[in-house]
Amino acid sequence: MRTEFPELARHHYRANKLWSGSSFAGSVGGAPISVLCQYIEQHNRPG
């Protein structure tokens, strides 16, 4: 990927990695999809 997308190296040059070793697991507890969509739409995206 570094060869195809050299611009990525500018953002990840210190760790020399493109992804972190962390992981994420989540649950919505059976909430209806309409509630999930509303929640997502009302939150700001990371800047």
Rank of each mutant, 00 (worst) to 15 (best):
R45C: 07
Q38T: 11
T3G: 15
M1L: 14
Q42I: 06
T3S: 12
N16T: 02
C37N: 00
S27W: 01
W19S: 05
G26K: 00
I33Q: 09
W19A: 07
T3R: 12
E4V: 10
A9S: 00
N44C: 11
G30K: 00
R14A: 13
L36G: 03
Q42A: 15
L8H: 12
R45V: 10
A9G: 00
S23P: 00
Q42C: 13
E4S: 09
Q42R: 15
H43K: 15
S23A: 14
W19D: 03
W19R: 11
S27D: 14
S34C: 05
H11C: 11
S23C: 11
L18Q: 04
S20I: 01
G29R: 02
K17P: 02
M1S: 13
Q38Y: 07
G26V: 07
L18S: 04
F24L: 10
P46L: 14
F5E: 11
S20H: 02
Y13S: 14
P6S: 06
I40A: 12
R14K: 15
F24S: 05
Y39F: 14
H43L: 10
E41L: 09
S22G: 03
L36N: 04
H11K: 12
R2I: 04
Y39I: 09
Y39E: 12
E4P: 00
G30N: 01
S22D: 08
A15H: 03
L18K: 04
A31Q: 08
V35T: 07
E4M: 09
A15F: 02
L36P: 01
R10F: 14
A9Y: 00
V35A: 13
S20V: 01
S20K: 04
R14E: 15
S20T: 08
E41N: 08
E7F: 05
G21N: 08
R2G: 11
W19Q: 06
F5T: 11
L36Y: 05
Y13W: 11
C37R: 00
Y13N: 10
E41R: 13
I40H: 08
F5M: 14
L8A: 09
K17V: 02
I33E: 08
P6R: 07
H12N: 06
S34H: 05
S34E: 11
S34L: 09
H12E: 01
T3V: 12
A15D: 04
F5I: 12
Y13T: 08
A31N: 04
P46E: 11
Y13G: 08
